[in-house]
Design a protein around this nucleic acid. Sequence first.
DNA 1: ACAAACTGTAACATATTTAATTACAATTAA
DNA 2: TTAATTGTAATTAAATATGTTACAGTTTGT
Lengths: 135, 135
Amino acid sequence: MNGQFQIATHVLTLLCKQPGELLSSDYVAGSMNVNPVLVRKEMRKLRACGLIESKEGKAGGYCLALSPKNVTLADVYKAVKLPPALGQAKNKPNPDCPVGRQINAHLDHLADDVEAAIIKKLSTITIFDFVNQFD
Amino acid sequence: MNGQFQIATHVLTLLCKQPGELLSSDYVAGSMNVNPVLVRKEMRKLRACGLIESKEGKAGGYCLALSPKNVTLADVYKAVKLPPALGQAKNKPNPDCPVGRQINAHLDHLADDVEAAIIKKLSTITIFDFVNQFD
DNA sequence: ACAAACTGTAACATATTTAATTACAATTAA
DNA sequence: TTAATTGTAATTAAATATGTTACAGTTTGT
């Protein structure tokens, strides 16, 4: 099981609900019951993509880098870099078989199409939209 | 890495290319360089969904149960039952946190939407279409 | 200057999932 | 009756994700 997208989305939700404040990885980890180091690992990815900012030192923490209306869940998906939705075969098909020789090219193209469909769907939902669902 | 969809699609491609013949798991496994037992495991799923038929005993093997024009890659995707594209968190968010209390419902709904988008995309491609790409 | 509270990150342990392998009962054809 | 094959379980090995510990570096406040 892979909960990286869920962690990232949870953090962004918290940051969105408490704008202007710096939230620590310990605080966030407490809201979701995961290890603070895991949170910091996801935050590294989000920061690398410019979605959040972090501040070190005492009273440090994380905050949004952009307006929640300008960040979509597609940005989050790309930032966390999940394994491909259709999976990823590691076998090396038999090059002497007409099907084996070509299938990886076709499967790769298909996987790209599916990832594009996921991103298209997620790009219709901003962080603001997602957070707005909460009571 | 998870190559179940790729195995299933590879087998269906071979079956489609050699209609009327029964292909053995050994033959198929040889084309893709995986273990024959893995092939038989995926075949079980495809058969449970009615996509293929199998025959036991000497000279047994597998063949398509439907016309390749009537089977889409969405059927294959549903048959192999991959883990959800957005992952699956296993943490239990803090029920005392307003965000933690609700987020799983929202994430689950989102995951359903994404799976629907994947299936929508895959349902536009039949096995016939996929195989037709080959030389 | 110093202590405290953080991030950033590495290293290691644990848990889970997937693939490979082995084994064998049941089935079918020759 | 033998050989080839599916169906399936059990085990091992490999890959991946998570949890944990540790600690250097940074910043704030006293």
